[in-house]
Design a protein around this nucleic acid. Sequence first.
DNA 1: CGCGAGCTTGACGTTGTTCAACTAGAGTGG
DNA 2: CCACTCTAGTTGAACAACGTCAAGCTCGCG
Lengths: 231, 231
Amino acid sequence: MSETKKVNSCTIFKQDCDCFNVLTKEQMQIVEDNQVIVEYEKDEIFARQGAFASHIIVIEEGLAKVTYEDGHNNLVLRISTPGSFIGLSSISDQNRLFGYTAKAYIKTKVKLIDIGIFISLIKENSLFGLELLRVMSEISHQKNARFFGLMHRQSYGKLADLLLCMSVNIFKEKAFILPLTRKQIGELAGMSTESVIRTFKNFQEDKLISIEGKKITILDMEGLVKVFETG
Amino acid sequence: MSETKKVNSCTIFKQDCDCFNVLTKEQMQIVEDNQVIVEYEKDEIFARQGAFASHIIVIEEGLAKVTYEDGHNNLVLRISTPGSFIGLSSISDQNRLFGYTAKAYIKTKVKLIDIGIFISLIKENSLFGLELLRVMSEISHQKNARFFGLMHRQSYGKLADLLLCMSVNIFKEKAFILPLTRKQIGELAGMSTESVIRTFKNFQEDKLISIEGKKITILDMEGLVKVFETG
DNA sequence: CGCGAGCTTGACGTTGTTCAACTAGAGTGG
DNA sequence: CCACTCTAGTTGAACAACGTCAAGCTCGCG
């Protein structure tokens, strides 16, 4: 009853959308004629909060983090994996500014689509707009779940959540190489670097996971789920 | 530099949208022929997370809270004031379920629009869809700012934020009657009832505000802003 | 008049941050 | 090839902010 779903609350999800499928052949051609593929290196910023959003960005390959900042602190809104959009929410900003910053965790290839063209496609093809509404809605749900987790869970639960999400949603393996530093993991889970380390240590002592450098192996999936649910 | 904007981070904002203005006279007529006005009493729930969203809801009068729940805990996503939509994100959910719960803080009048009709309007009129994208985008920005605040501020800052937002965005007065219990204020600001009380007490001792029952008067706006910025 | 919800206060415990020190490994340049 | 440095990771100790608990209080209402 109280458990509506077993969804985990991370916002690191693969969001494949059919948006472009609803375009006509001609419209698709317009997109293809006006898109640019760019590759960014690790740690490069390819969308900066407050800057003019001249393009809609679609991640092709790689991994990026999307953060909201204010100079002192920053909050990771989500992780973007191939297929996800960056800058959708700028479509409607009257100034067309990015509402957040996107930075490559690893070498990341993105597709840039001119925002003017993108908007004209929305105006021409209402189904395209509807699909985009679907995407934004999905992002919104994910964000709600993510923030719910960040607010109401404590470190054990948050970190278990993150590991489960990485394993289940991103890598689809029980063992995976996490290309993030402890610090980055910390900001993702909303906790300090030290707490991440200590919690990892406890997880290892409890035989839930094993860690060798950046390689994390989930030894006891059920146990970790239990921590996620109760922590 | 580091202060990009002076925006306060609450998600209790008035979100008036021109969505319906882009409809043709005929389309507007369809909306009007298919809308129902309903009034809910204080504490009544008019949208329940996980339930079928048969209608899009527009707040006409009153004040409501939108929460994300999981049985044990709940997280206030935003406060809805007249003009705001509830259920927009269900448009695109394939099951058309509400992603959150909406509950009236006070007597609240809402307009219900059949979701099927709403969607057909989006399909017919791409400008309508674009406007809705604009709204969702706005909600998204507000949510980012809100959670940024909830995550990175401590109780003083969060409560100062809330009071400023109430005063500036909702009531547009330095003195206003907050129709919420301490507990409700607490869940809004992400803190315990007791912490709300203690913080209020401190604010009064510092001559920032005065409180008589539910009536709150901001005595020192600048001081409160300072607390908001530094706390 | 008495009940109960909301409010207030104090004491206490705990989580998790912060700080500081130390280690390990990866580059770098003489 | 060996200091030298820099980053990332690790550990311990101290501390602070908050939540929790428990107890009284107050006020509105039946």
